[in-house]
Simulated scan of single mutants.
Amino acid sequence: MKTSASIMVLLIEDDMDIAATVNDFLELEGIECDHAYDGESGLDLAKTGNYDVILLDLMLPFRDGVSICEELRGEGVDTPVLMLTARDTLDDKLEGFQAGADDYLVKPYALEELLMRTRVLSRRRSGEIKKFIIEDLEIDFEACSIWRANQEIKVSPTGWLILEVLSRNSPKVVSRAKLEMALWKGEPPDSNALKTHLYKLRKRIDKPFEKDLIHTVAGQGIALREEENGV
């Protein structure tokens, strides 16, 4: 079971000897590790598990690493991906990054370097997310479009920025100070500016629909998530 301080990794690797070595080394360093042998089972785990980093081999049975990464990013999964592969040409690396990978490590690699890169990636979510989907709300970052219950929603540029910050941190609470920093470098035009923009955003995103998705958490901030007890 993952604790608040632990790192949880998914290793998708078809070489059982490499997988066992990596798994044992990471666990000795206090990192929990799940393992998938093939691409299909790895993709299922990546979509459903709560992982901090995905260590993804490029060549896998049933499903290759590039297509796995593309599908995860296309569906809004923002878990950082470290690709592991023996293919080391520039074109190979570009293909991995274009698919949404966050880092690249060529085999054979030193376990200490794998550990270092895993720890660095675990501190952030991926910036390669292309879509965010929650309940019936879909945010497409590439198309800059918002849909809810099959209805397109138009918001102001400020509303879009607020929604982008909330979605990239979802389901965590984002403090008002963090939102103001993202919008106005911490210096809002007036004391009610954020409150006004949040009100307008809620009118677009929540008011016409059955469930609220933008929630105020008293004393903490704002969250975009699936719950019905927001105020």
Rank of each mutant, 00 (worst) to 15 (best):
M1S: 05
T3K: 11
S4R: 07
S6M: 05
V9Y: 01
L11F: 03
E13Y: 15
D15E: 14
D15M: 10
I18N: 13
I18Q: 15
I18L: 15
A19S: 12
L26T: 03
E29K: 15
L43G: 02
D52T: 11
D52K: 12
V53C: 06
I54S: 06
D57H: 13
D57I: 08
L60E: 01
D64T: 12
C69S: 09
E70D: 06
G76Y: 07
V77W: 06
P80T: 02
M83V: 05
M83F: 01
A86H: 03
K93C: 11
G96V: 07
D102Q: 01
Y104I: 05
V106T: 05
P108K: 15
A110T: 11
L111R: 07
E112F: 08
E112S: 14
L114C: 03
L115N: 13
R117P: 07
T118Q: 13
T118G: 13
V120Y: 14
S122K: 07
S122L: 08
R125F: 08
R125W: 10
S126E: 03
E128W: 00
I129C: 02
I129S: 02
K130Q: 04
K131Q: 03
F132K: 09
I134R: 15
I139P: 02
D140Y: 05
W147I: 07
A149H: 13
A149Q: 14
N150C: 15
E152R: 15
I162A: 04
P171D: 06
V173L: 14
V174T: 00
K178N: 03
K178D: 01
L179M: 05
K185R: 05
G186K: 04
P189W: 04
P189T: 00
L194Y: 02
T196W: 09
T196Q: 12
H197T: 00
K200W: 13
D212R: 13
I214R: 14
T216V: 05
L224M: 08
E227P: 04
